[in-house]
Computed example of a mutant assay.
Amino acid sequence: MAQSMLLYWGSGSPPCWRVMIALEEKQLQGYKHKHLSFDKNEHKCEEVKALNPRVQVRSDSAFKSQGTRLIPDDPAEQALVYQRVFETNNLQQKMCKCPQQSTHFSSKNMQTSSFSCCFSCSAFKSQGTRLIPDDPAEQALVYQRVFETNNLQQKMYDVAFYEWYVPEGERHESALKRNKESLIAELKLWDGYLEKMGKGSYLAGKNFTMADVVCFPVIAFFPRLHLKAVSDIPDGSNICTVFCSDDVAFYEWYVPEGERHESALKRNKESLIAELKLWDGYLEKMGKGSYLAGKNFTMADVVCFPVIAFFPRLHCPPERCPRLMEYYKMLKDRPSIKASWPPHWLEKPEGQDNLKNL
């Protein structure tokens, strides 16, 4: 099976690294792969665009019966694995890109609700509508749309509720314009998905699935907010976009110089510190030597480790997250992780000191 697979990947990208760890754990070595250079913008080539219009390097696969069992069968254990998988996005966002969001409209709530939906499907698989199909290819598309919904939701909130999120002194016309364009592009992408499926289809095919459960509540906002078409976002409209690229580790990469604010960076450092305490608490509760969701290595570890690995690399003070650093040391020599370690990290083991003053 591995020989029939082709993986596009970029060195140091957490999404790519996750897939590579999972393939190692599932004993699927020997797959074909193509290393894409981010510096040369190879991830934006036509070959990748044909597979993924967002030009983000990623992969979708489902291999249940081979190698390490990354998703346990027990519903309670499975629930914790899914919870940690969905929560990883919070940690990654706060390290890299920290949106200024209200609690009510945060992507964290979307992740938590998606986890609850997935858990309900596992715990009550044979009851009511089958929202997660058994066929691996169909299942992959459902999960892809579930996870992609966060992009649509965030860009819609960033447009409709700008003044709720961003303090007045941190608003910029350039950011508003950039994010309007981002929302328009996202809407065209989802329109394309449905056009490709054909008239009368749901998001992932002819059947109503978890993709529709997760995405419809977001789509329902568009007619409610009188956004009838992407052309309905005029310049100067009261429907504005939020500037959501304030960050901690890569602040100067994301934020144009004229839009940077010390108040935003300070707020997001505090947010990241609080998130690290939360994850340290998870591991402390699990007990010494445990993985993120229990005594076994699971999909939660596959998804989260590539994010955690950035903290020591970027010189985060170990005392900020002692349990996470113990977890990092425990996992960094695991065969699947060593085999997939980013090549440029091997050449240059230490990164920039972006987090040393956290």
Rank of each mutant, 00 (worst) to 15 (best):
I132S: 10
G289I: 02
S290G: 11
P312C: 05
N52P: 07
F221C: 10
K32E: 15
L194R: 08
L80F: 05
C98R: 10
V48W: 01
L283Q: 06
P99N: 13
L346E: 07
F243E: 15
E25C: 02
E262I: 00
A220E: 08
T129C: 08
K295T: 15
V242R: 15
E24I: 04
F250H: 15
S263H: 04
A293E: 14
F161E: 14
R145T: 04
P15V: 05
E284C: 03
L176Y: 10
G205I: 06
F147I: 09
R58I: 03
D60E: 11
P317A: 04
P15I: 03
E186L: 07
V159T: 15
K177A: 09
F147V: 03
M197H: 07
D60Q: 12
R267D: 07
L283R: 07
L28G: 08
C321M: 13
P14V: 00
F222P: 04
L6G: 12
V242F: 12
D60P: 05
Y143C: 07
S174C: 08
G169V: 05
E138Y: 05
R84Y: 01
Q139S: 06
Y251S: 14
E148A: 06
K180F: 02
F161L: 12
L176C: 12
D60F: 07
I219D: 03
F250R: 13
L28F: 09
M299P: 08
R323D: 11
Q29D: 03
W164M: 10
S106E: 01
K199P: 02
C321D: 08
E46I: 04
R171W: 02
K188D: 14
A175M: 12
Y282R: 07
E148D: 05
P256F: 00
F115M: 12
S245E: 12
S107D: 15
S116A: 15
M5G: 13
L187A: 06
F86P: 01
D74R: 06
C117Y: 10
Q144N: 13
